[in-house]
Write a protein that binds this DNA or RNA. Sequence first.
DNA 1: TAGATTGTTAATCGATTAACAATC
DNA 2: TAGATTGTTAATCGATTAACAATC
Lengths: 203, 203
Amino acid sequence: MKSDIPVTCLQRLPVYLNYLKSLDGGAEYISSGAIARALNMGEVLVRKDLAYTSAQGRTRVGYNRVELVAALEDYLGCNNKKNAAIFGAGGLGHALLSYGGFINYGIEIVAAFDKDPEKIGTEISGKPVYDVSETKEGVEKLGVELAVICVPATHAQEVADVLVGCGVKAILNFAPVLLKVPEDFNVRNIDLAANLAILSSLI
Amino acid sequence: MKSDIPVTCLQRLPVYLNYLKSLDGGAEYISSGAIARALNMGEVLVRKDLAYTSAQGRTRVGYNRVELVAALEDYLGCNNKKNAAIFGAGGLGHALLSYGGFINYGIEIVAAFDKDPEKIGTEISGKPVYDVSETKEGVEKLGVELAVICVPATHAQEVADVLVGCGVKAILNFAPVLLKVPEDFNVRNIDLAANLAILSSLI
DNA sequence: TAGATTGTTAATCGATTAACAATC
DNA sequence: TAGATTGTTAATCGATTAACAATC
């Protein structure tokens, strides 16, 4: 639906949102220039980005902070609850299951899936761990739309294959491997080690 | 030193590296076209990217796979061991302490720093947990060059302030807040919740 | 009113892609 | 040789920035 917004812009919206939320209790209005200075970016870019949302600035005044937060949250779908599941309940999966930040975006982690019999049937941070071989049934029953892949690279593609076939709409992939998925299927990759390596190569 | 390579290109180098490593035991040579098809990108871009490293392709043959892997590893500093430390031994910090992927890039996680007295003095995955108030001494003693911030957003800036003053050269920041650091100091931000939210907004 | 700010249109910049000569 | 592939130069595309009219 929002296929027209550049991804690079979309990625900045949460940054604005975090910043504006951090101002809670501050001034009623904030200008694009003030946001730009705080975030170290150009003010025209801020206005262009915000224009993708329903936010409306007032000339000479700026944007109503509370309204702007609401517009960003609305655009990012924070008011539109979605269920997510974690695939792979290892260290990272475990951390994500107990991470509180998703709910700010209307995302609830409802379950984990793993293949370890020791973990299956238990709960982690109050979230049930199911057998990964029951992914399809579980995803359908729970209404999972977003999947997070935290399994080893060697198993990521097979998990992804199941996921694309069972109603999941997007995958956040932590496995350092390029997943083959249909053209229109959304995947974002986060390679934790590579991110640190990139920094390392710069110093 | 490599300030001339576009960050966008630098970010693709680990992707090539992962792909080429996954081909272990395969053909001796690989062409930019083959890489491009596998990774779903343009072949000229692949050649341009690889040209930043010391890799040399042979006309009509392609790149020697083993040499190419070595060139990428060399460029990314994998043979140039660096120490990293985790700040904040919560769920995510814990996961990163036991994550094995960093060593592929020559990065060793040598310690964690936390403020919880229950954690200070213990070990997590064999890595000692120090008092965050002793960051400066610890970082200097251990020769830490890279820091990973996993503390809550409310404390991230104060941790960063200490880090920039004690010889750390770059920060990987998981706290959803923009860190104020000197111009030339390298920071990469990974907002886990925002990454999932971006996907969520696309569906 | 004068000045500050938005929103938009035009210009610039940088990254990607296309074209192609060189090579084996 | 003919054909495949690299590496480079030129063209294109998209994102950012600059300029500026509109507004209160």
